[in-house]
Design a protein around this nucleic acid. Sequence first.
DNA 1: TGTACATCAGTGAACGCGCGTTCACTGATGTAC
DNA 2: TGTACATCAGTGAACGCGCGTTCACTGATGTAC
Lengths: 233, 233
Amino acid sequence: MSWRKDKDKDDGRAERGYHHGNLKEALLQAALDLISKKGPAGFTFADAARMAGVSPAAPYRHFRDRDELIASIAQRGFEQFESVLTQAWDDGRPDTVTAFERVGKAYLAFAREEPAFYSAMFESGLPPDANPTLMAASERAFAIIRAAAERLAALAPPGQPRPPAMMMALHIWAMSHGIASLFGRGDAARRKLPMSPEELLEAEVLIYLRGLGFPTDRQAEAAAPAGPWGKPR
Amino acid sequence: MSWRKDKDKDDGRAERGYHHGNLKEALLQAALDLISKKGPAGFTFADAARMAGVSPAAPYRHFRDRDELIASIAQRGFEQFESVLTQAWDDGRPDTVTAFERVGKAYLAFAREEPAFYSAMFESGLPPDANPTLMAASERAFAIIRAAAERLAALAPPGQPRPPAMMMALHIWAMSHGIASLFGRGDAARRKLPMSPEELLEAEVLIYLRGLGFPTDRQAEAAAPAGPWGKPR
DNA sequence: TGTACATCAGTGAACGCGCGTTCACTGATGTAC
DNA sequence: TGTACATCAGTGAACGCGCGTTCACTGATGTAC
């Protein structure tokens, strides 16, 4: 279908024929580069074409307009996000709490390692209801967190009232997103911190779970009487 | 110093003399309007001038460039934010936990009611270290949250290890910012929710505080054995 | 109180630029026979 | 295997537009005397 798949990682400007062969992909890549450098607003259609080494009219063969390209990126971002979260959750292995925290860390890792995807997903200002496919992808990603919360809620100690899984999922999402936005991004906008974003999130989640009545002592709290914020130094 | 202070709330286009009299203020207001409509990236210098009813060259008498105007807005936003949080905190009256939660609600209210300020403060992409005045204003606002956390930490029950106030402050900030960003903004980007952002945040903070060992039963938990997420229906 | 003058805060025309988008076109590719 | 032709995926020139920024300018204001 496409020719010279093996040579499209260079700038694409030199020694290619009349047909690019993989332009759609190249444009998406170029857009990701530009977004990660200048934010979703700084990205221009013409720039992406230039970066891919084609004329400014070429992108119109593949995307109706700029917004459609950004939506494509957000879409792909949510799919990748979902996959990353699914892997991290690993169906709750080895135990629910551990897996749950791994999901939080995966969230932060994604925001840091894929700032362009993250921007397109959460900061592009696309109206979420205007694009059902995109919204569905977003909801599939959230469903992972929600499923994890569901499993966790089912483990609630008998004495405690069982917390609503939906609420837990929203809380976890907000914690992760808050820390990622304020402290954990790859770009220069992050603020100085006395601890890593990962540690900050882990402590927050542990305190939260404890507040719900979950035992968070899987690593022998009794032996080392430290709070969730680490051992006293 | 300025003339016709009383008449600068209209569009400013009609029946004013050669001198605007209050252009700096009018430009800031125009920028706020534009940002709240189109986001910090959609705002243009020329547009602000047009909205204020002056020629495109006029703003240069008051701001070096576009970035300086946005920084001014962010600065003012942080000052207003600090004032709002200070009022909400009210030096911990009537009790620390109540006041603490009021701070969280004030945070959400600010994000919702002043989306333009909020955008300029947290999403404009200005390098935070490039502008010491701005960073100082930001830190003064955070200091309110931090001071509140400090007071709360001092109330830790004797049995519990005392949580680091800085960490608590960062957690609270991240919770508030996460919920505000995802669900609580005035614009169209917010998502559907089974409960209000305020309720969501209040529950989250209560669970968190309980996880730290604070008694959160100031409204008679014993009498109504409900979780922090409300009474069972 | 009046006048001369420095300063301030605007004007408006012009510039170069890059963007998004369109158009008729053309080279390359795939396929039917 | 070769040829004719439809379709695909680009070109490149052009357009109108709005932006940021500059410049010499000028009307309004405030102040010294």
